[in-house]
Nucleic acid binder design. Structure first.
Lengths: 211, 211, 211, 211
DNA sequence: GATGAATGAGCTTTCATTCAT
DNA sequence: TATGAATGAAAGCTCATTCAT
């Protein structure tokens, strides 16, 4: 392959990559604004300024376009969390866990579109088994360390991890979806949720709890 | 107005009421199953066995029909909670609060359709100011009692109420929308969320909790 | 039901019947002109002067519209032939058979659109078993009489019936589909085909046939 | 032109020829499978493994590609028949004619794709005059010999030739297009059609024919 | 010679809503 | 009060063809 051919190929693929990203970016906005069903390929094309058919050069269908965005958003969440996990494994487990939970909420509020794709836009169809995402594994690991290193009472790791996820998903999704509710300050609220959830897990003064 | 006329009117309005309720009932099912956009007036009419036009005698538009269902679902949630509040005002405030939180989740899981309309289906358009629903007032009252009667530390009522709501909304919405996630047992999870959230609020030495 | 209601219903159904027939008529023309695939609901609506959606009030889909026309055309062919069969059962069997064959071709040439739907437009998908149409039964009966009453040699009824059908289908379809071929006069050709096919079946003086 | 240039050209044209044939081969299959309209240049390119644009280097349009295949199929039919005609001119004319008719049907059944292009896929648009194909000339010649050598009654050559063609086209097209009809054995049917058609033409013992 | 992204027009179908009856 | 035929707009998607590379 000579250099002219190389440049040709390269330029083409660069342009294609660019177009593809342009589509994804615009689509994310529209999917979040309108929801899956109301989203329209026509409107997307109109917004970008290309023909409808052009979209189908990059994605086989509306569904595939959507799924691509879901994957991308999950991936971003995972990157966001796993960076933290890698950088701070030496910290106090409880501090690290709290930081992890904060980071999760922070990700959602900073990237509400991504959070929509990952958790809010369209539940997986009830038939197919749920694919637990690696992002959840990180949280589970953080919880496990807290319990194994005896910072927490001896509770079931899975139960605690799911309960924590529920709490932070609650605050994240409400803040995103109900921005007009007369919330107290965001930070205060988030702190309260996370502290509430975590503090009662620490080891001393453990009340019995009926199963 | 003589009695014949009255009876006529009365019968008419009874019949009308009946038709209206029949429509609402069928519509709720369809809205939840298909989402707002995919819901179709045609399909609704088909399911009920009436003409499309007939629907428009009772509701001006699809949007109005939807809003009516939202109101209705909020109202049901309110009734569900306020009954509890009225019956058990004399109990220990913390026990009552926990019971209230349980009841909230229970309502959502028993009436997922209503919970969808109240919180999941379509956020109010971000332009209009959020109308805080009386259902939330009940929760706020429960929290206030806990704090005022010194069962809780002296925290901001509003902050605590919102944080508790976030937590239980999280678990409720996840259980409804992700039924295929490999959850630990529902009851265990709900208990964990609620206990986590509440226990850390009590001022000192956590009190025993009845199931 | 009072007379006003009756008239309402009646007028409505008359109008609907009219619209339905108008659609069928226009569709038949277009299907034959363009073929199944090139036929377009849009063009049909345009030709009739109604909205596309209107067509779907009368037929669920393009496919259903097409099938309705197929049924109708088969039915017409059947009526055309069965009348003959009923009226002339007393005739000489061979004469009757020849008349039947002529009538078949005549039907095709007088109603080329119907013949298209019955035999030319779209072969049944190869998967599903072929539904032999009652029209073919009539021909089989005619042949059987010829053989049973010893006007014909003792040949297999089914084989002869199929062979005769093949011959007349050949001439009918060619005359319809290739109108610009320099045919000899239509009548002469049809007579030749039918006489050729039938005459060699009569019982006496059979020439040798090389296999 | 030097030899290098010649070789280059030659190689080029060989390669081009190869590509062209590859396209034609794949296109024939698709046209027959899907019909003219449903056939898609995209799918063709996909199947071959080349770009869409490449097809347009060899053929100006879908229409031209189609017409080329029509020509090719007619040509193949002609070759198939003319070989027979050349090899067996000395035979008994009636035997030769029958063999010719058999061969025609055989060609259709062995090469249904070609038969589709020649006669079934899309009739020539009714406006343009019909170009009688040389293949038909062969049949006419065979018939003429039968009549001129007094094996047949003194009938009009053209009429007889057309009538025979009609009969064998009928059986060929039905067998190809309605494979699921409960046919008697193919060979029996074909023999019956051809014998029926030819036997009644031989000179002696002419039965009366009613109008 | 070959590529494949891009287009504009077209497809079948469904929708919320209206309105004469 | 109730009907349901009709509409205009819009949906997701595919097409034959072009053209800069």
């Amino acid at each position: 392959m000579n250099i002219v051919q190389y440049n040709e190929l390269s330029q083409r693929s660069v342009r294609q990559e660019f177009a593809r990203n342009q589509i994804l970016e615009a689509a994310r906005e529209l999917f979040v604004r309108d929801g899956y069903r109301a989203f329209s390929m026509r409107r997307l094309a109109g917004g970008i300024g290309c023909a409808v058919g052009t979209l189908y050069l990059h994605f086989d269908s509306k569904e595939e376009l959507f799924q691509t965005l879901v994957e991308q958003s999950f991936e971003r969440l995972y990157q966001y969390l796993s960076g933290l996990w890698a950088r701070h494994q030496d910290r106090d487990p409880v501090v690290l866990l709290k930081k992890g939970l904060f980071t999760y909420v922070e990700f959602g509020l900073r990237n509400p579109n991504d959070y929509h794709f990952a958790f809010l836009l369209r539940a997986t169809s009830p038939e197919q088994p749920y694919r637990v995402h690696p992002a959840f594994d990180i949280m589970r690991s953080m919880v496990r360390r807290c319990i194994e290193e005896c910072c927490f009472r001896q509770l079931d790791v899975e139960t605690v991890a799911q309960a924590l996820w529920a709490a932070i998903h609650g605050v994240t999704s409400l803040l995103i979806q109900r921005p007009n509710f007369p919330w107290v300050s965001r930070n205060k609220l988030i702190e309260q949720v996370i502290n509430n959830a975590v503090d009662s897990l620490v080891g001393h003064a453990v009340p019995e709890e009926g199963g």
